[in-house]
Design a protein around this nucleic acid. Structure first.
Lengths: 211, 211
DNA sequence: TAGATTGTTAATCGATTAACAATC
DNA sequence: TAGATTGTTAATCGATTAACAATC
């Protein structure tokens, strides 16, 4: 059923299509052509059609795309039609901030618990999510059917924790730690690397200033 | 002085080089070859040499690269040798979490103030950073020589605020809002788009599961 | 000097764009 | 039917990798 190896570049663009289609849907539009979408998103119409056709023909000649249908289909491709259970590892600032994000839950990404080693944090609640001791992690992952771990530990602790997460049967790590992780290839890692992002901003800022 | 238009793909990799070189430097290594670095970073040696040579010859035939020198030079390219003043727009969870990140400050990215419209937040301090009313923004940006705004508002308020930031003379926006911004082309925007990242993770998770 | 490794040119590969026949 | 717009093939462009002469 799975179409053969879609390139990273295509995958990278899918969430953005999903986001724009969601907005267009909210605005009440029923259909849209690749040309119209291309001018809104500032990509070529050709690229949009190529990208979508990796997953099947969602449009209709002479008509374009039905916005709701296309939005739903891309949602399915992205796996947003199922719900996903998550834990947050690290009850610090970032861990707490992510735990309070309502929009994840709304889209089926459910944070079931927060884990930390700090005794001062254990037992506290962030919103309605409890902070547990890391020692409970293994059993919790199994019991609550956790697929995704959100890793918000400092660099020094992150690699070791990644190994533990893998051994607990975690299927994907959303990595906010400032380091790359080494995991078996059947475990998905999505890196955020905020500081890398800030450095790219800084580069662009500096190179403009030089002109 | 500015070398001509370096591709986005190269820029994207620079912070990662910087990060690895920092770690290698900390480990006490003095020199490294592109081959050794390539095996650590899992990219080709050829790519490393190509990338670096966009900015000049930092190595030496038969020797390799001096770790400290290369680290410093990439730091300069990324603009990390200068300090940058920032404000955080939005005193919510993400705004507060980012304000508490010590590593930004340590690398010359200084958060001078947080801005919010919520009267309950104004006057509070996050760490030692004060929350100010948005009405003070314009004057503050000028007085404190703010270059970078970290935008952590909800989608609905983000675009309007981006316009205000531009009109205040902000040079770069680090955008955490779940929407794309429209700004003049001399204003740098670096998008974080956490939800897009989570959707990519979800895609990879789902596509593995189907196999 | 001989060995190692860069800097750089050339070859390959993949991704984007253009073009157009198919078709609603 | 005529017009619009897709799906898809072909052409172009750019990025990655390979190769090797230059040189430390």
């Amino acid at each position: 059923m799975e179409e053969r190896q879609i390139s990273k570049a295509v995958i990278k663009r899918l969430p953005r299509y999903y986001r724009y289609l969601g907005e267009i849907l909210d605005s009440g539009m029923e259909r849209i052509s690749s040309g119209e979408l291309s001018s809104r998103m500032k990509v070529t119409a050709s690229q949009i059609r190529q990208d979508l056709n990796h997953f099947g023909g969602f449009g209709q000649q002479g008509y374009g795309y039905n916005v709701k249908y296309l939005h739903d289909e891309i949602g399915k491709i992205l796996g947003i039609d199922q719900s996903h259970n998550m834990v947050v590892i690290g009850g610090g600032n970032m861990g707490q901030a992510l735990s309070k994000y309502a929009s994840f839950e709304k889209n089926g990404f459910k944070i079931k618990g927060i884990f930390d080693v700090n005794p001062d944090l254990i037992g506290k609640k962030i919103g309605n999510i409890q902070i547990y001791p890391t020692s409970d992690l293994r059993e919790f992952v199994k019991r609550e059917k956790i697929e995704i771990a959100v890793l918000t530990l400092p660099k020094s602790a992150a690699s070791e924790m990644a190994d533990i997460l893998v051994s607990c049967g975690i299927k994907a790590i959303w990595n906010f730690a400032h380091t790359d992780l080494n995991v078996p290839k059947d475990v998905v890692v999505e890196n955020v690397h905020l500081f890398d992002s800030l450095l790219r901003l800084s580069y662009n800022l500096s190179s403009y200033e030089k002109e």
